[in-house]
């Protein structure tokens, strides 16, 4: 093998190594890195999306400003997680009683193709009266989820139907729209209720 061939091979190997390193950097730390999934939601004031509530009114993140809010994602064709979350939340609201009179409690569907305004209205009517149900177009749903850093995905099930994987945490915001914490799915009442009280208390201090 001539010296020239060796050099060529050497250069090629060095080139491949450099390219590998570059690709590695690009995918891990560089512009090609995946978006971190578990980020904090944006403040409501920085979100932009438009939906329809259970009464047919046009709503968006600005509708929630002025009072503390509790927002969560789900869908009404969900047999387990969503009714459990809605009944958990109904129980927390019952515990808090009059303290939550001014709180916004919003259930946003990740399945707007099946969850119409009427469907959402009927569904939320079975739970605590403070719970609102918002639905929008596929685009607006994606914008809303992006703002809350929530994720969702349609998953086919046996028989041609589908279900939705989705973020099941409940997001808390203060009256100014600042993110104020998360209540995890199925978190026990003794942890969840004090978290809500804390948000309500902060809001009271700021406005007084």
């Amino acid at each position: 093998m001539s010296r020239r061939t060796l050099l060529t091979y050497g250069a090629a190997i060095a080139g491949v190594a450099a390219l590998t390193l570059f690709i590695g950097w690009w995918r891990v730390d560089g512009p090609g890195a995946p978006e971190p999934v578990a980020q904090r939601p944006l403040p409501l004031t920085q979100m932009e999306f438009q939906m329809t509530d259970q009464g047919g009114a046009t709503v968006g993140p600005a509708s929630l400003l002025g009072n503390p809010s509790m927002v969560f994602f789900g869908f009404t064709y969900c047999p387990d997680v969503c009714p459990t979350t809605l009944s958990d939340i109904s129980g927390w609201l019952d515990d808090l009683g009059d303290d939550v009179a001014e709180m916004n409690v919003v259930f946003i569907t990740v399945d707007p193709e099946r969850d119409t305004v009427d469907g959402m209205a009927e569904y939320v009517s079975y739970f605590h009266p403070a719970i609102q149900g918002w639905t929008g177009t596929l685009d607006e749903t994606a914008r809303a989820a992006a703002g809350f850093r929530a994720s969702y995905e349609k998953v086919a099930v046996e028989g041609g139907d589908y279900t939705m994987d989705h973020t099941a945490s409940v997001f808390l915001f203060d009256a100014e729209g600042q993110f104020a914490g998360t209540i995890d799915y199925h978190e026990p009442r003794e942890f969840a209720v004090p978290k809500i009280r804390r948000v309500l208390a902060t809001t009271g201090e700021q406005t007084s």
Binding site: V37, A38, C78, D80, V155, D165, A168, Y185
Partner: peptide, 28 residues
């Protein structure tokens, strides 16, 4: 529910219940 709070649902298949034990089907 995974570490990022994303819930998903899928078939379990067969469930073997050992002698003297029980399996709970409960919310979540």
């Amino acid at each position: 529910t995974d570490a990022n709070g994303v819930s998903s649902m899928g078939p379990v298949g067969e469930i073997t219940i050992p002698a003297g034990e029980s399996v709970a089907l409960e919310p979540g």
